[in-house]
Design a protein around this nucleic acid. Structure first.
Length: 473
RNA sequence: GCUCCCAUCGUCUAGCGGUCAGGACGCGGCCCUCUCAAGGCUGAAACCCGGGUUCGAUUCCCGGUGGGAGCACCA
């Protein structure tokens, strides 16, 4: 059998902030492609900007990836640790004449750009040191190392998502490889690392498309292998505007805290920009089996929380009851409003498990699941919410009071209770709803709940009657 | 300003020259029903505009318009 080299993918975030939804999708696509092909998925933290990189951001990225279930192969690679190697490559290019020293100062370059802008010219380095031999005046002066890029012809990015994208080399300038303090720039670091790590496929946000052309020139200068590129369209906020802190650019962990499931996020993010015919509900296993680069869409997408909710509801319903109970207990321990309830207490846990099949039908998030289950958390009469309070009029309370004796004589099972309630309603010319709603309000404090008779049976005779008597008049 | 990318219902999308333009979310109606959900049925809802190419363009080409990205000794 011939050995076809397995793809090597990487996700390379810079630890300057949280892992937001766009980054999460980029990571997901890389991960899926690696898993689909049996290749590797590496994680590289691009922390060469020391002033903006933080350990908190690194932790957030790793935490977010882990929660999303996107496991990476091997150890996390920290780019800054490889600075010496990056410098080595730059020096080599310098020695080969493929790069040169530029002594232009920052002020000088700023002035240059302002002039270009004022003159309506494209803003780019004008190559003032490209062919200039440093004189005595430059001795000991700070300099940066720039790539001597091709000035004629064109550079074509063969993009698997966008197709061939052409750039006139005259539009590309000589990018900085090494800063005046000797540290490598991002452009140098990415290319060197990708080459050293044996990256075969670079799948990243479309905001890097322009960079690809410049990186290709560096790759050529280094005589390195050209990876397969795939630039993903960006994700916009719900209003179509750029994703910002105010709408949509939440850390993936924020979605966890809102009660979304990792499986939901994977499915949702996958469909945001990738399709497989009319399929909408796609399990992770199925996604791995189906994923390809060809079906990635070219246009930017928006977040749609309604659809996210719908999908999450689906995955909640798909989850086994006992698993959901554990998830809910864990979720509540991290939630300010739920923290003080003891969901792990045997009695509460038992009730949750007993009601879960019905509860999960009614929840779109773990948060909603908890809210719907709240009447199971404590014993004794329930406080009424506004709707329940309104429903329990004097008449309703009277009906409730008259209903209780009919229930008390049953064996307190769901079917028996329902039969008793129906019989009572019939005998009194009432609809079942007229009897059930006051009972529901009294039992749960709400006008909406899982099936009433099931809940009466679940809570038991004593607890149910204690609650109901509090509102019977 | 310069370079590059994108463009099908409100949203996510299918479509790859000839379709009643399909699905999903959301929205309306009906059914089911002890409430709310879930589920089933059903309705409204789209090819940005203008030129070509072609017997025929949502689909191919060009232009426009509209969105977006990039133009650092940030990543």
């Amino acid at each position: 059998m011939s050995e076809i080299p397995k793809p090597v993918l990487r996700f390379a975030p810079s630890p300057t902030g949280m892992l937001h939804i766009g980054g999460a999708r980029t990571a997901l696509f890389n991960w899926l492609y690696a898993r689909h092909t049996g290749g590797k998925f590496l994680l590289r933290i691009e922390d060469t900007d020391r002033s903006r990189s933080t350990p908190e951001a690194v932790a957030a990225i790793l935490g977010g990836m882990t929660w999303m279930g996107l496991n990476w192969d091997g150890d996390v690679i920290y780019q800054f640790a490889r600075a010496a190697r990056h410098r080595e490559v730059a020096e080599k290019l310098l020695a080969e004449g493929k790069a040169y020293r530029c002594y232009a100062t920052a002020d000088e370059l700023t002035a240059m750009r302002e002039e270009q802008k004022a003159a309506g010219k494209p803003m780019r380095y004008d190559g003032r040191w490209r062919d200039r031999v440093p004189g005595p005046g430059q001795d000991g002066q700070p300099f940066v190392v720039r790539l001597r890029a091709a000035q004629e012809g064109e550079t074509i990015v063969h993009d698997r998502v966008l197709g061939d994208v052409r750039f006139e080399n005259s539009q590309l300038d000589d990018m900085v490889l090494l800063r005046s303090d000797g540290t490598p720039t991002y452009m140098l670091a990415v290319v060197v690392d990708d080459a050293d790590m044996g990256i075969t496929h670079v799948i990243r946000g479309a905001d890097h498309l322009n960079n690809a052309a410049r990186q290709l020139q560096l790759i050529a200068a280094m005589d390195a292998a050209v990876p397969v590129y795939g630039h993903l369209p960006l994700i916009n906020g719900p209003d179509g505007a750029k994703l910002s802190k105010r709408h949509g650019a939440l850390a993936v962990e924020a979605y966890r805290d809102m009660g979304y499931l990792p499986e939901t996020m994977r499915n949702y993010l996958l469909r945001l920009g990738w399709s497989h015919g009319d399929d909408e509900i796609i399990s992770t296993a199925q996604a791995i089996a189906w994923f390809n680069l060809e079906a990635i869409g070219k246009s930017a997408a928006r977040m749609d929380y309604k659809k996210l909710d719908n999908l999450n509801g689906h995955y909640i319903r798909e989850t086994a009851d006992d698993v959901l109970v554990e998830m809910l207990i864990d979720f509540s321990s991290h939630d300010d409003e739920l923290r003080h309830f003891f969901l792990s207490a045997p009695k509460v846990k038992g009730r949750l498990l007993g009601a879960m099949a019905s509860l999960k039908e009614r929840a779109k998030t773990l948060k909603e699941l908890a809210q719907g289950a709240e009447f199971l958390f404590t014993d004794g009469p329930r406080p009424l919410d506004a709707a329940a309070d309104k429903l329990l009029t004097a008449d309703a309370r009277a009906v409730l009071a008259r209903t209780l004796p009919a229930l008390e004589v049953t064996d307190w099972s769901g079917p028996a209770l329902e039969a008793a309630a129906r019989a009572f309603a019939d005998a009194n010319g009432l609809k079942l709803g007229q009897v059930a709603q006051p009972l529901r309000a009294g039992l749960t404090g709400k006008t909406q709940s899982p099936p009433l008779f099931e809940m009466l049976a679940l809570l038991g005779r004593e607890e149910s009657l204690t609650r109901l008597r509090a509102y019977a008049a």
